[in-house]
Design a protein around this nucleic acid. Sequence first.
DNA 1: GGCATCCTGACC
DNA 2: GGTCAGGATGCC
Length: 280
Amino acid sequence: VPELPEVETTVRDLRQMLIGRRFKGVTFQDWERMFATHPPTVMSQLIKGEEVTGLTRRAKYVVIELTNGKSLVFHRKMSGNLFYRHTEDELEKYTHIIFGFEDESELRFSDLRKFGRVYLFLDEKEKLDHFAKLGPEPLEDSFDFAHFNAVLSKRKGALKPLLLDQTLVVGLGNIYANEALFVSGLHPLRRAETLTEAEKQKLFLAIRQVLEKGIENRGTSLSDYLDGNGQKGSNQEHLFVHFKKKGEPCETCGTPIEIMRVGQRSTYMCPTCQPLSSGQ
DNA sequence: GGCATCCTGACC
DNA sequence: GGTCAGGATGCC
């Protein structure tokens, strides 16, 4: 569920609350499969006594930097959430792992669908190796149009699956890919190799625009997503096409929104604003 | 590229 | 009971 804006919002929330806290250990509720690098008892031993020195985001991963070069990394996949709570607070449904701090507060990993994963990397190299295949961060200054143009020019095929490919550019998921294509006026099946320079420029700007808007609105809460305090975001109220009902009019031109299946994902688009004309 | 797969719950 | 849901991987 969480795409870049949701992960960024969570990281900003947790940064305020976690930095400086020292881990006591890990309490494992069920579903050991969520531990990607070490079994629960081993991970517990390894983080015990380590202090949180920083929180960052890489792609859709939450990265918690610890003392001694370690990092605790989460991927929430479809339905995972991270909450900062006090030990006495009532447990949220679907809580699978609890990371306890020495001061009786804790970080909880809840996930209805159990696709989420937690990783512990013991040094910088382990972490970088895990992230090695990820593409550039779309909101960083280093990701300029020249860079985007260069990476996109090497790729072929329909735009929608390309935008979801985290080796091209990270952070987009189904919601923001649909929104970015609408904003740039490009059809989801338009082939990358047929794009003009001007169209690539539009797409580049649209990607940044929809992601920044998502962050301003503290993420899109359509079903499961909640921030680090358990609150919903509001971006679902500001979507152009994603999650619209079939036939609902496009806000720009009034044409009924179409829903099609592209690469196993629901793809919402306006046939008037996103024609499949030039080039295909 | 397309497809199944990992899961649970909501909706038709 | 079938389909679908903010993701990503591994198999043709």
